[in-house]
């Protein structure tokens, strides 16, 4: 295999891993607070369509990105008002959100299907991008790729060093104890859910504004689900989210690479790789009760009823 191919594959891997990284990052924070939001796919699609519409109408890509995030937040607030406010079943509510988002985005975006848009341009970072191989792979991306990496680092530091980070973990592990020492459980969860929505919206906007600058119905193609699997794959660790996002990104472009090399493996078959990997991780995790207990947020998916 020649060096150019490797460079290209790694470059594409990072690109296709970025939306997964963003969405999974949001979902990790959300799940660490004890809320399981299965509406990622719906929130992504709303982010994608809103970002695209705003960018096309205003001609301003940054505005589009922000609008995409806001759309994600709006969707997550809808989820929050049901799952946190009315304490509905989180799994059912999340699934409903995905179905709702899929339909609404298709409806809203009808007039924009096939419209052209000059997407977000790559930004080569001076000096760094000149490093052979590494510079090409890492430092010639569009700004959102860098943003994703910065957000990842910030989130990591948030959980590692900050008190609010501890609060999120505490609320996700045992909301009753958290209440008794005076932590605002619902506020923490609302914020975590909103962050999850913003990240999913951003991930969607990345698809429609940078990855493939266009809008088509259902263009996320299951990436929301892959991101959910990715969270489990990463066993709720921020560092592993990055590793997983790139691995899953690689899996999703593998069929192109293999076609290029003349091998013929069904792309559908390759698309199952992320899920297979997730199942393997789940099996490893559940082989040991302590691993589950130490890593998974203990109250995940359980509606919180204050005992007061």
């Amino acid at each position: 295999m020649d060096i150019d191919l490797i460079t290209n594959v790694l470059f594409a891997m990072i690109r296709s891993g970025t939306p997964l990284l963003l969405v999974a990052l949001g979902e990790v924070v959300c799940e660490k607070s004890g809320v399981l939001n299965l509406g990622q796919e719906g929130m992504m699609l709303m982010g994608a369509v809103t970002g695209f519409i705003v960018s096309v109408s205003t001609g301003n890509l940054l505005l589009g990105v922000i609008a995409g995030m806001m759309a994600g937040v709006a969707m997550s607030l809808l989820f929050g008002s049901l799952a946190l406010g009315l304490r509905t079943n989180q799994v059912a509510t999340g699934l409903a959100l995905t179905i709702f988002g899929t339909g609404l985005s298709a409806f809203v975006g009808t007039d924009y299907v096939g419209k052209p848009l000059a997407g977000i341009a790559p930004l080569a970072i001076p000096l760094l991008s000149d490093i052979p191989l590494l510079g090409t792979v890492l430092f010639r991306h569009d700004p959102l790729v860098y943003t994703a990496l910065i957000l990842l680092t910030l989130t990591w530091a948030f959980f590692r060093f900050s008190r609010p980070g501890l609060m999120v973990k505490a609320v996700g592990e045992n909301p009753d104890s958290a209440t008794s020492i005076g932590l605002p459980v619902l506020t923490v969860r609302w914020l975590a859910v909103s962050f999850g929505g913003a990240m999913a919206g951003l991930g969607g906007a990345y698809l429609s504004l940078a990855y493939t600058p266009l809008w088509s119905e259902g263009m996320t193609a299951g990436r929301g689900w892959i991101a959910l699997a990715l969270v489990v794959f990463a066993s709720w660790r921020i560092g592993r989210v990055l590793l997983g996002a790139w691995l899953f990104g690689l899996a999703s472009i593998m069929h192109l690479v293999l076609q290029g090399m003349g091998a013929s493996i069904s792309s559908n078959l390759l698309a199952t790789l992320p899920y297979l990997a997730t199942i393997v991780v789940l099996v490893i995790l559940s082989s040991n009760q302590s691993k589950i207990r130490m890593m998974a947020p203990m109250s995940l998916g359980k509606p919180f009823h204050s005992r007061m």
Partner: peptide, 22 residues
Amino acid sequence: FQHFSLFETLTVTENIALALPP
């Protein structure tokens, strides 16, 4: 409390830090 309000996955210091003013 009779049923402790501690968080198993955090350390002693982290548990105490959570209950103190920021």
